[in-house]
Amino acid sequence: MTALLTAENLSLGYESRVIACGLNFSVGAGDYLCIVGENGSGKTTLMKTLLGLQEPLGGKVVIGAGLKKNQIGYLPQQTVIQKEFPASVREIVLSGCQGRCGLRPFYNRVEKQIAEENMKRMGVFELASRCYRELSGGQQQRVLLARALCATQKLLLLDEPVSGLDPMVADGMYRLISSLNREGITVIMISHDMAAALRYASHVLHLGANLFFGTKEAYLESEPGRLFCRAGKGESR
C-alpha cells in the first residue's frame, strides 16, 4: 500500500519545549486514523505539524507522491476567528474551494456547485447568506465542516469535529465521515469520543506517556488501549 503521509522519528513542540517525541507512523490511502490521548498531549500540535503549519522540532513528515496540498481538507479546532469578521456562510464555504483554483481568480460553476452541495450536506444551506459571526457555536462548526469538505479530494483532517454539536448531529457527522472514507477519502481525526472513534477507525494513534500506533484491533488488545477505554467509559462524553 502507498503511504500518503509518513512521520519519521517526529518530535513536536513549541520552541524548545518538547511535547512528544519519537513518533513513527504512516497513513496509507484509504485509512481512517483516529488520534486519541489526554488533553494537552499534543494532538492538535501533531495535526498542525502534519499539515506543515508548524515546523517539527526533530524528524520529518514525508508527504507521499500521490498527495498534493490542494487535495487536503482541514477542520481546525476552535479557530479563533475575530469576532468582528464580516463574512457570509456562503463566502466561507466557498473559500474551501480556493485550493482548487490555483491562479484562477474567481470560482467557477463546478466549485460553486460543490460549495452548495456541502452546505446542504451539513444542513447550513438555509443559512447561506447569514453572517457567520451571528450563528451559534454548533452552526459555526457545521459551516467550517462544509468548508473542509469542499477542500477534501484525498485527505481529510479533523480536529475534534463534533465538539459543540448535539448528539444527533454528531452521530450524523460520524456516519458522513465514515461514508466519505468508504468512498476512498483518507481520514485523520482527533476525537475524545472513544466509542465513535473505535467504531469507525481502522488505525489508532495514542499520544501520551505510552505511545501506541497500530490497527484498531491491536489497540484494543494493548496496554494503553485497555486503560484508556476503561477511563473513557467512566467519562460522561
Binding site: 506543515g52 496540498k69 482541514y74 481546525p76 476567528i81 473559500s95 481568480p105 470560482y107
Partner: peptide, 23 residues
C-alpha cells in the same frame, strides 16, 4: 485586488486553513 480578492479573503479569514488546503 480584484484578481486576488478570493485569495485575500481566504487568507484573512483563516490563514491556517488556507495554508493547509494549498493556498
Amino acid at each position: 485586488f480584484t484578481f486576488f480578492y478570493n485569495k485575500i479573503f481566504a487568507v484573512t479569514f483563516d490563514e491556517d486553513f488556507a495554508k493547509a488546503s494549498g493556498t
